[in-house]
């Protein structure tokens, strides 16, 4: 049932034509095909069904079967645009496109805003930021007193929430990251420039001729 090489790719659930995906993203056709090699490896790690479920995603991120992680879960949910509980190949390529070094800053800023807007209200609220800080502390085993956390939140909202209404809207976020560009570092994956080198086996399964790629 998994995604087997060559003709079998077309039977992979959610498989989309690499030429079409390349036309919608920053990737070349060859790069989309190389991403399929990565996708196959992740999507077959627990259940070989040609789709990435949350467990497989977390396994690929952490290299071990960890219990729930707020951030990995949030990224998964943003990749799973059709809210099916799984990521298909088209979702995977379109989401990774945001992380390509050549993708516009605006797209990266918008994605990062959605990432931190945990409850999808269109605002990053203080309680969401606190929830993320607590998740980070749990993950890293760093200990911070509650009053320290509140001080960090005060400082952050003083800087980011320019109209001081207790929540950060998209325009405030755009301004805040322009002043703190390091916050967008996680939104760029230099690896995506070299994806065909990292997964050279795509050449053996390529379904398009070199001129098209």
């Amino acid at each position: 049932m998994g995604c087997v090489p060559s003709k079998g790719r077309r039977q992979c659930p959610g498989y989309e034509d690499p030429v079409f995906l390349a036309s919608q993203t920053t990737f070349s056709v060859s790069e989309v095909e190389a991403l399929f090699e990565l996708f196959k490896s992740i999507s077959s790690s627990v259940i070989d069904d040609g789709l990435i479920n949350k467990e497989e995603f977390v396994l690929a991120l952490f290299k071990n079967r960890k219990k729930e992680n707020l951030f990995a879960s949030r990224i998964f949910d943003l990749f799973d645009v059709k809210h099916k509980g799984v990521i298909d190949f088209g979702d995977f390529v379109r989401a990774l496109h945001i992380f390509h070094p050549n993708t516009s800053l605006e797209d990266k800023i918008n994605f990062s805003f959605r990432l931190y807007d945990l409850d999808n209200t269109g605002f990053i609220e203080r309680q969401e930021v606190k929830q993320m800080l607590l998740a980070l502390l749990g993950e890293s085993e760093m200990k911070l007193a509650d009053e320290t956390i509140e001080a960090i939140l005060d400082k952050t909202f003083l800087e980011a929430d320019t109209n001081q209404d207790g929540k950060i809207d998209l325009s405030e976020w755009q301004y805040f990251v322009s002043k703190n560009p390091s916050l967008l570092r996680i939104m760029t994956l230099p690896y995506l420039r070299d994806i065909t080198t990292a997964f050279p086996s795509f050449v053996f399964y390529s379904e398009v001729d070199e001129a098209a790629a």
Partner: peptide, 26 residues
């Protein structure tokens, strides 16, 4: 830098769960 001098998002962005580079590690 001390966590107190950093803004919350600088801290949050250090989460391993947000580091998608590990997807590419074999």
């Amino acid at each position: 830098a001390s966590p107190v001098t950093m803004n919350a998002f600088e801290l949050i962005s250090k989460s391993r769960g947000l580091n998608l580079a590990t997807l590419f590690e074999k």
